[in-house]
C-alpha cells in the first residue's frame, strides 16, 4: 500500500451490525445521508442502484448485502460513504459512520481466522485499539463482483 511510507494511517471507522470496519481516509471522498436510490435492473444484488451525487450518477453498494448480513431498515444514522478506487466512485451504505482515527501501521495485524469468516475475503487486516477491534476493508475486493463471500458459495 502506498500509505506504507508514512508511519500512521488515517482511517474512517464505520459500523455494520455489531462490528466496526475501517477504510483509509484517502479513499473517501465524502459521507452522505441516505437519499433516493434508483435501482438498476440486471446488476448484482449488492448493488443497490445509483444516486444523484451533485450531478454525478454514482453507484451505491449495500455493504450489509455484500457481506451477507441480514438487512435492516435504513435509519437516521445510516450513511453513504462515497469512496473512490481509481476511476471508480461508489457509495457504500453503512449503519453509521463513527470516527476518524490515526492508527500506526505497526498496529495492523493480518486478518485472523477468528473474525468469523463471513467477510474474510474482503479484509486487509485488523487493528486493535484499546478494546475496539477495527476491520480494515480492501475496497478493490469489495467492488469485485466475482468475489463472493463464503455464504454465497455455500448457497451455490
Amino acid at each position: 500500500m502506498a500509505e506504507a511510507i508514512a508511519s500512521e494511517l488515517k482511517i474512517i471507522v464505520f459500523q455494520l451490525k455489531e462490528k466496526e470496519y475501517a477504510i483509509p481516509v484517502s479513499q473517501v471522498r465524502s459521507i452522505e445521508k441516505i437519499q433516493h436510490i434508483t435501482r438498476i435492473p440486471g446488476t448484482a444484488a449488492f448493488i443497490k442502484g445509483v444516486i444523484n451525487l451533485r450531478g454525478l450518477v454514482t453507484p451505491i453498494i449495500d455493504l450489509r448485502k455484500r457481506f451477507n448480513l441480514d438487512e435492516e431498515e435504513y435509519s437516521d444514522s445510516t450513511r453513504v460513504i462515497i469512496a473512490t478506487l481509481g476511476e471508480i466512485e461508489v457509495g457504500l451504505i453503512v449503519d453509521s459512520a463513527n470516527d476518524v482515527l490515526d492508527i500506526a501501521f505497526d498496529s495492523i495485524e493480518p486478518a485472523p481466522e477468528i473474525v468469523g469468516g463471513i467477510d474474510t475475503p474482503f479484509i486487509n487486516g485488523v487493528v486493535k485499539i484499546e478494546k475496539r477491534l477495527l476491520i480494515l476493508l480492501d475496497l478493490a475486493k469489495v467492488l469485485n463482483e466475482n468475489l463472493k463471500g463464503p455464504l454465497n458459495s455455500i448457497e451455490a
Binding site: 433516493h36 438498476i40 435492473p41 440486471g42 446488476t43 445509483v50 453507484p59 476511476e87
Partner: peptide, 26 residues
C-alpha cells in the same frame, strides 16, 4: 449521463439522467 465503468454491464440501459426532483432515471 453515463452509468460509469462500474455499472456498464446493465442490460438494456444506455445511461441515466437526473430529473427535476434530483432523482436519477434510467
Amino acid at each position: 449521463k453515463s452509468l460509469g465503468n462500474y455499472l456498464s454491464g446493465a442490460f438494456a440501459i444506455s445511461g441515466a439522467t437526473i430529473l427535476g426532483d434530483g432523482e436519477v432515471a434510467l
